[in-house]
Amino acid sequence: MQSQAEAKYDDPEVKHAQHSEFVSFTVASQAFCLKITQIREIRRWSPVTILPHAPADVLGVMNLRGAVIPIYDLSARFGLQQTEASERNVVIVVSVHGKPVGLLAESVSEIISINPDDIQDTPPVDSRNTMDYIQGIISHEDTMVRIINLDAVISVPEQVLS
């Protein structure tokens, strides 16, 4: 997969100004992606410290170089089943309102280059919950990749528990 990504990267025809790069990953076996600029780093999962009274989609907090950052289970956040976190999983560290937040995903797939024109609006589906978190979809190598609306997923960190 990695080699495909690189091949794409090197192809001068594909790589022109309007293209943005996205990192695609899987959550509960579905493909999602985030703009590469929204991602600070990707770490392998390690057990977190549980936050008492936290909702199911808040896994806890972890130590990121001396900072305490909250970790969300994206799958549970999207209303899908909870992830049984293991060493195979990854934590995608993003920055929301200037604060680092970790998102648990199944695995990271590849870096894809997306032409904004190719982004389609999310067709209306029943799952309201998911709809709010998705700002568009694209077709990439016959797979539907959902573009996550980060601000909707993590609105304001303070409100997580209240």
Partner: peptide, 11 residues
């Protein structure tokens, strides 16, 4: 924990 999560009772 300000800004990480809200007020957690007991913490």
């Amino acid at each position: 924990l300000d800004g990480v999560c809200g007020n957690i009772p007991g913490v």
